[in-house]
Amino acid sequence: TRVETATETAWISLVTALHLVLGLSAVLGLLLLRWQFPAHYRRLRHALW
């Protein structure tokens, strides 16, 4: 049971790290898009909202 718990903890930390990385890359990508294509971003936002 001790090994299982350790594996579970490792998986949880791995998944958390993955989610953090994905979230950060998504935010960075959005910022980059907004910085590179302001007109396109505004049009996209206008279409979405």
Rank of each mutant, 00 (worst) to 15 (best):
T1V: 14
T1R: 07
T1W: 07
T1P: 04
T1F: 10
T1N: 06
T1M: 15
R2G: 08
R2W: 14
R2C: 09
R2P: 12
V3G: 00
V3A: 02
V3I: 14
V3E: 00
V3S: 00
E4M: 08
E4A: 08
E4H: 12
T5F: 01
T5N: 01
T5G: 01
T5D: 01
T5H: 00
T5V: 03
T5K: 02
A6T: 12
A6C: 04
A6E: 06
A6Y: 01
A6R: 12
A6F: 00
A6Q: 10
A6K: 10
T7F: 05
T7L: 07
T7I: 09
T7V: 12
E8K: 01
E8S: 07
E8M: 00
E8A: 05
E8V: 02
T9D: 13
T9G: 12
T9V: 11
T9R: 11
T9F: 09
T9M: 09
T9L: 10
T9P: 13
T9H: 11
A10Y: 05
A10G: 11
A10C: 02
A10N: 05
W11V: 13
W11A: 01
W11E: 04
W11Q: 06
W11C: 03
W11L: 08
W11S: 03
W11M: 09
W11R: 03
I12W: 02
I12S: 07
I12P: 01
S13P: 03
S13T: 15
S13Y: 10
S13I: 08
L14N: 05
L14E: 03
L14Y: 03
L14V: 10
L14F: 10
L14R: 03
L14D: 05
V15R: 05
V15E: 01
V15K: 08
V15H: 06
V15I: 14
T16W: 06
T16H: 03
T16S: 10
T16D: 05
T16P: 02
A17T: 10
A17K: 05
A17W: 03
L18Q: 00
L18F: 12
L18K: 04
L18I: 11
L18A: 04
L18W: 04
L18G: 02
H19Y: 13
H19T: 15
H19A: 15
H19Q: 09
H19V: 15
H19C: 15
H19N: 15
H19K: 05
L20T: 07
L20C: 13
L20Q: 00
L20K: 04
L20H: 01
L20G: 07
L20N: 00
V21I: 10
V21N: 00
V21D: 02
V21L: 13
V21M: 08
V21C: 13
L22D: 08
L22P: 03
L22S: 06
L22A: 12
L22I: 13
L22T: 07
L22F: 07
L22V: 14
L22E: 01
G23Q: 04
G23S: 09
G23V: 14
G23N: 03
G23M: 15
G23C: 13
G23H: 02
G23E: 05
L24G: 08
L24F: 15
L24M: 11
L24K: 00
S25C: 13
S25N: 04
S25F: 04
S25L: 11
S25P: 04
S25D: 03
S25W: 06
S25T: 11
A26I: 13
A26D: 01
A26G: 10
A26K: 00
A26T: 11
V27W: 08
V27M: 08
V27H: 00
V27P: 01
V27F: 13
V27N: 01
V27D: 00
V27C: 09
V27S: 08
L28R: 01
L28D: 01
L28F: 09
L28W: 08
L28T: 07
L28V: 04
L28G: 03
L28K: 03
L28Q: 01
L28M: 14
L28A: 05
G29R: 02
G29A: 13
G29W: 08
G29Y: 04
G29V: 14
G29H: 01
L30R: 02
L30F: 14
L31R: 02
L31W: 09
L31D: 02
L31C: 12
L31P: 03
L31V: 12
L32N: 01
L32G: 05
L32E: 00
L32M: 11
L33M: 11
L33S: 03
L33C: 14
L33T: 05
L33N: 00
L33Q: 03
L33R: 02
R34P: 04
R34V: 09
R34T: 07
R34W: 04
W35L: 06
W35I: 10
W35Q: 06
W35S: 07
W35F: 14
Q36M: 11
Q36R: 13
Q36V: 14
Q36K: 12
Q36G: 13
Q36A: 09
Q36L: 11
Q36F: 06
F37L: 10
F37Y: 12
F37G: 02
F37M: 08
F37I: 09
F37W: 05
F37T: 06
P38I: 11
P38Q: 14
P38A: 14
P38M: 14
P38H: 12
P38D: 10
P38F: 09
P38R: 14
P38T: 11
P38Y: 15
A39G: 12
A39C: 04
A39H: 12
A39W: 09
A39V: 14
A39K: 14
A39I: 13
A39F: 11
H40T: 10
H40S: 13
H40N: 12
H40R: 12
H40F: 14
Y41F: 14
Y41D: 02
Y41V: 14
Y41S: 12
Y41K: 01
Y41P: 03
R42H: 15
R42L: 13
R42Y: 15
R42F: 06
R42G: 12
R42W: 07
R43M: 09
R43C: 09
R43I: 09
R43D: 06
R43A: 08
R43H: 06
R43G: 10
L44W: 10
L44G: 04
L44N: 00
L44K: 04
L44T: 06
R45S: 07
R45C: 07
R45T: 09
R45E: 04
R45G: 06
R45I: 08
R45D: 03
R45W: 05
R45P: 00
H46N: 14
H46D: 06
H46P: 05
H46Q: 10
H46K: 09
H46L: 07
H46G: 11
H46I: 07
H46E: 08
H46C: 04
A47Y: 14
A47G: 09
A47Q: 12
A47P: 04
A47C: 08
A47M: 11
L48S: 04
L48M: 12
L48Q: 06
L48N: 01
L48C: 15
L48W: 13
L48D: 05
L48P: 05
W49R: 05
W49G: 06
W49Q: 06
W49V: 02
